[in-house]
């Protein structure tokens, strides 16, 4: 299980990176943390002509509080994000999700931005940034543009990133008063990709869900926002009847794919169980 040969480049600046992306086009692959790309290379599922290692681009690893919110550099290691003291305060959803992202020795290397740009349909972080309505900052030669997280994830391993573009940072807006976050997932083993995961970010008022953002992972081609379900729960107290109604609404929100780990029916069922669990926790404390 050895990779096919490739050329390796390690640009020192974004400009150099743009040059290389232009030079190789679709034959060039960006290497960030490598925790998804390297297995694909080893298995020869990916056989790019060139690997463009952006790990040493300066200034992309910071985690900082800015006026527009919490800004997480694309090259911030997942482990650094997990351990960042500002995370629990400024992005508790991400703080809760982080321990589920792989394992200790993959989080030390895997990057925050890499996980997003990889857009694995079962990954935790894409669902989180969608639920938090984060902004993805994307650099290209012409300058930087911002893409709302909800528009960033387009399909399996597919994002809004155009050829020649690099995700450089993610801005998470400040948490408004009354908003609460719960992340949870159902995985057979700790650290596995989830059979289903739910990133919930909701405004809870007087024991009821006032505004809901419910984003599922592992049940679609990309993070799935459960808008029908959100509509059912919004503004209501979560008694068993509402939870049951929400579960039925979820049927219309999700069309999960089947794979060797779970059938469509199982994923639907688990999503519903997880929804009940997460909503109960959300209003419970």
């Amino acid at each position: 299980m050895k990779p096919a040969p490739f050329v390796y480049h390690r640009p020192a600046t974004l400009e150099e990176a743009f040059d290389l992306l232009e030079r190789y086009g679709p034959e060039g692959r960006i290497l960030a943390g490598g925790q998804s790309l390297l297995p694909a290379l080893n298995m020869r599922l990916a056989t790019p002509a060139a690997v463009i290692d952006i790990n040493r681009l300066p200034g992309l690893g910071a985690i900082r509080l800015a006026p527009e919110g919490l800004v997480i550099g694309a090259l911030a290691r997942q482990d650094a994000v997990e351990r960042s003291p500002v995370m629990a305060q400024s992005a508790p959803l991400i703080a809760q999700a982080m321990p589920h992202v792989g394992h200790l020795a993959t989080r030390t290397r895997g990057t925050f931005g890499g996980s997003l740009a990889q857009a694995d349909p079962a990954a935790e972080l894409p669902a989180c940034v969608v639920a938090l309505q984060a902004t993805m900052r994307v650099a290209r030669r012409a300058g930087t543009q911002e893409i709302p997280a909800a528009q960033f994830f387009r399909g399996i391993y597919t994002t809004a990133l155009a050829p020649g573009e690099i995700l450089i940072e993610v801005a998470v807006p400040p948490i408004a008063p009354g908003w609460r976050s719960v992340f949870d997932e159902l995985a057979r083993r700790h650290g596995d990709y989830a059979l289903v995961g739910l990133a919930a970010h909701c405004r809870v008022s007087d024991g009821a869900v006032a505004d809901a953002r419910l984003v599922f992972t592992g049940v679609g081609l990309a993070p799935v926002r459960a808008s029908r379900t959100e509509a059912v729960v919004s503004g209501r107290r979560l008694d068993p009847g509402v939870l049951a109604e929400a579960g039925r609404a979820l049927e219309g929100d999700l069309d999960p794919p089947a794979d060797v780990h779970a059938s469509t029916a199982l994923r639907r069922h688990l999503a519903r169980a997880l929804l009940t669990r997460v909503l109960t926790r959300l209003v419970g404390n």
Partner: peptide, 20 residues
């Protein structure tokens, strides 16, 4: 599993050239 710059990493998920 090995350590690179003090951090735990998987040796199969890092290229030797990256350890330069």
């Amino acid at each position: 599993t090995v350590r690179v710059d003090g951090e735990l990493v998987r040796g199969c998920l890092m290229l030797a050239v990256q350890a330069d």
